[in-house]
Design a protein around this nucleic acid. Structure first.
Lengths: 183, 183, 183, 183
DNA sequence: CTTTAATCGAGACGGTACGTCGAGTCTTAAG
DNA sequence: CTTAAGACTCGACGTACCGTCTCGATTAAAG
């Protein structure tokens, strides 16, 4: 419920900030993205940035969550192996090559030592959500929450580990991963 | 080839820095560990820290690599399922509860947007090394490098993902994970 | 000539602002009085304050000018020495102990580097006006403007300097000052 | 007692700051002089400014105290009236026309609502010191501290008031003021 | 009894300085 | 040549106040 009195929030400023953070991420990398830099790039006052977001992680998440969801959504064919393979390929592309994915990896990294960022990601489980949809369709037997969680970790885990630990993503074979998952 | 003239490097200073990093990590957490703080805690000049290490990631890795190896090494029993279960339990403890493990998670995080840290971790693959040893013994069939890499990702991945993405480590069942790995 | 159409100026808002300034001056001191603070304390919008006053000096002067005049006005007895002594005592009280006086000192201070404030004070010579009245009655010989100006400086100056330069006002003896003035 | 270990204070930085504050005072006026502006003008880091001075008032005082003393020091002739007249002329020039004087007036102004500045000026009574020297020589009868204080206020006060309250300094007649003082 | 016009509150906006902190580097004297 | 000490430049931090700007809602006099 948002107040109706006072000057309304500037949609222009909101978008400028989100675009700025996207651009800066690509240009200078996550570490060099600063609240100051975002504000300047967006031609927005620092105060305005802080008014609506408290950390760069928050902005980054808002800026890339939609992209992430889009990149991880697949159109089901009915064939479990095909669907899982397609999903795993999308996951590899997302984590290893997409801008939204590199933002996401940076956020996961930050979450390891910043509880606020961890909370943020817990509230918006991009990876888990995308995987659960695919699994529910491909493996109907996975119907309890526990089983779903376990399957999610098994499906995403190997790819996630390989990329996060700096391994070469080209060595990853989505079909082999999918087959092993179904075994 | 190192010079032999002049005052020799102080071993006292080296150890003081490594201990200071360990202590600070526990007391204030990774994010609040600073080069300045390390130097002060170690009663060592800032210049001395910079002379021997170029980033806090380097110090951190040197300070916790040995601990990490110890915590991830298991004594084999001969039974593959038992060995894998023991290893996975050690992995869970390391990533979720150990100091060395939280340092390692932070480094993995940093590596996502800092190529220097990524290089550092690539040269010292703590997790992969520990897993390969276990796999080689438990699954002798895994004899090609590719198969070993694949198995490593399958063994470590699910646990790694679950903990890095902020899931509750108590939900992880090392025996179930081991059984699925062997299937 | 002010317009007669439209909503009339709110007398309530005007008084609330002046009272807020008075209160804030006492509570937090001149330096910490801000336009923002005044508006909030008066439960008035910032725009409303700016609509009617352009600087905090203006508000302050309007808020304390009447008090200042009252505090510096004396009832004549006919005896020059008595009148001057009474006046000087009032001047000491005003400059050293009164709220209106501390506002006035702050304004004089501001006037040293802000021409707008200097202009404001030139148009409303609180100190000079009060002194001229007393001098005209006590020293009828002072009848030219120049003589009056000179006498004003001689009468007010020593006290003004002592207090503005941070000397202890208890060391000031109004009767001695009055006697010396008449000499 | 200053420490002898560590890098010594940069004399270059110290002078650059003092000159910068002098220049800025003339160019933009006291109100627009900021710590940030001083640092930039002096090509010195903000941190360095804060390391040695805590407010712009402190820098200003250090930058103009010597000038002030020079401008208010007179060479005695032996004739009381001449000496006092010369001193009062110097006082008028200082307060009304000199850069050091305008800095001093600004500081006096600030002192009215900033106890720290008031303390600063109390420790370095530029005006009082200069007057006491002149009075001691011209009026040997003034030998008790109280008498000296009283005489100081009488000597400086009228001129001080006239200029601080925005009156035209050209109307001030140093000889007339000196004569009245001696009467 | 509706316009019309200026007010009011609330609060977001772009700016800019604040004082602090950590990053690295540099400059001493001491060992 | 290393060491501890500590000053140096640089640049981001998050906050505060500045003065301006949109809003919707009042409030009176004028039509």
């Amino acid at each position: 419920m948002e107040s109706k009195v006072g000057r309304p929030r500037s949609e222009r400023a909101r978008e400028a900030v989100l675009h700025a953070v996207d651009d800066l991420l690509v240009e200078v990398g996550y570490a060099a993205v600063t609240m100051k830099g975002i504000a300047e790039r967006a031609s927005v006052s620092r105060q305005t940035v802080y008014r609506w977001w408290s950390t760069k992680a928050e902005i980054l998440l808002e800026a890339s969550a939609t992209d992430a969801e889009d990149e991880l959504a697949i159109t089901p064919t009915g064939d479990p192996l095909d669907d899982l393979t397609t999903y795993l390929q999308a996951l590899i592309n997302f984590l290893a090559h997409s801008h939204a994915g590199s933002a996401y990896r940076a956020l996961i990294g930050e979450a390891q030592h910043d509880p606020d960022v961890a909370k943020l990601l817990a509230d918006k489980d991009v990876l888990g959500d995308s995987a659960r949809v695919v699994i529910a369709r491909a493996v109907p037997a996975c119907d309890t929450p526990q089983a779903l969680e376990f399957a999610t970790a098994r499906l995403i885990g190997p790819t996630f580990f390989a990329i996060m630990s700096g391994r070469d993503p080209r060595q990853l074979d989505p079909q082999a991963l999918a087959r092993t998952f179904l075994a």
